[in-house]
Each structure stands twice: as structure tokens, then as C-alpha cells.
Design a protein around this nucleic acid. Sequence first.
DNA 1: AATGAATGTCCATTAAAGTGGACATTAGAT
DNA 2: ATCTAATGTCCACTTTAATGGACATTCATT
Lengths: 110, 110
Amino acid sequence: MKRKRSYSRVTRHALSILGKLIRIGRTERGMTAQELADRAGISRTTLYNIEKGAPGPEIGSVFEVAALVGVHLFEPDSRLLSMHDARLKEKLALIPQSVRPAKRKIDDDF
Amino acid sequence: MKRKRSYSRVTRHALSILGKLIRIGRTERGMTAQELADRAGISRTTLYNIEKGAPGPEIGSVFEVAALVGVHLFEPDSRLLSMHDARLKEKLALIPQSVRPAKRKIDDDF
DNA sequence: AATGAATGTCCATTAAAGTGGACATTAGAT
DNA sequence: ATCTAATGTCCACTTTAATGGACATTCATT
């Protein structure tokens, strides 16, 4: 069964920021919540939750909405886009496909 | 009722990249899929879908996993983090709370 | 080459997200 | 100050994601 999950501070923070960016982007473009929801193919209620920074919505819907209002997480100036799919695929090919025991410590740096 | 959604190319692309970054981050840290899933409080199956770039998973889970393997979407060097919550809140306060008719055209730039 | 663990993938069950209404509240245009 | 549409929020119903198990396959180590 699905369980009640908990989210770290960074996660909640990131969600909050993304939601605000979307809200700002939407109003800047003069779109109503209903319009944006329709364009994204989701309900106004869900968009509301997204702008609120709720952790539940599907990531696909959130990204779709973000793109529609001009919030691109993988912009050229972002370190993320700097690696496009193809390059990442190469990198993945170089890395071991399967991880062994991993006795070494792991640091949750947050 | 919920409908079968469709996702734009940019969205699918972003999801694909994020999934790969997570996969890379995980292997670089020597974590097995099961370990990471446990830490994130999700099932291995869901983590699998996340790494695959599926649009369905909850954004909260994806962000949580990303943070755990060191993929921070809101880094200092990213234009996104440069605006922290507080500043965004200010900006939101300056913007109209409610959007009027919006007869002007909107460009879906992708 | 053998082998044990990690990963890819499918499936039925279950819990949660998504939805459309409905209604109160609020803010913008007149 | 009014009026009207946009937003905030709740809810019951529906659809879908999350899960744990199971099993085949693929690596990494020996």
C-alpha cells in the first residue's frame, strides 16, 4: 500500500519555490488559473495544489505547467541543461550498470 | 474523471534528463536502487519509473530522491535558487492577485 | 565460467491523486 | 460602491499511481 510520506526541508523548499515561480509566470502572462489548467490538461484544483507547492501532483503535470508559463528548469544557463540527453546517455554508458554492495558511507548532505 | 494526459516535448525531455541525473548520482554514490528507494521512502518500482523519466510519479518523491543523490534543482548557480522563497513572496505581493480576462494572445513557446 | 546480487519488468491490490461541482471570499474594472 | 469574475477551499466519486511480490536478465566479482 501507499504510505504517508515525509519530505525533507530542501524538497519542501524546492516545491514551494517552483510553485511560486509558476504562479508568478502565470499572472505575468495574464492567464487565469482555469486557462492554464485547461492548456495543461489538468483541473484547476490540481493547478491550485501545484502553485501551492504540494508534493502530491504528478511531476509530468507540474513540468508541463511550468513550461507553459515559461519556467524552464533546464535552461541554457542552468547547469542542468548544460548536459543534454545525449551527453548524459554517454556518461551513463561509462558508469557501472549495476551497483555493488556499497559498503562505503553515504552522506545525506541536508 | 481523470484523463489520459499528453506531455510536450520539453516536458518529456526535462523528465528524461532529471531521471538520468538521478541515475548517475545514485551510481556515483554507490547506492543500489533498493537503498535509495528505502531512504526516499518509496518502492524500488517507483524509483525505477523516476529514473526512467516517467511523468506519473509524485513530484515530491522525485525531488526527494534527487536531493538524496545530490541533484539540486535550485543550486546557487541556478537562476532558480537565486530567488529564494522570501523574495518570491515579495514579488508575489506586488503582482495582481487575480487575473482579469486576459484578451491578449499567449505564446506557447515550445 | 560460475554465481549471487542488482536491475528490468509485469501484475493484482490498495491507497491516494485528480476531477467537477459547489460555494464563500476577494479583488479588479466600471 | 457595485458587480462580476477569479481565486480559495471542501467533498464524494473516479481513475491512477504506489506497492510488494515474483521472475528473468544482466552485471560484477571471484
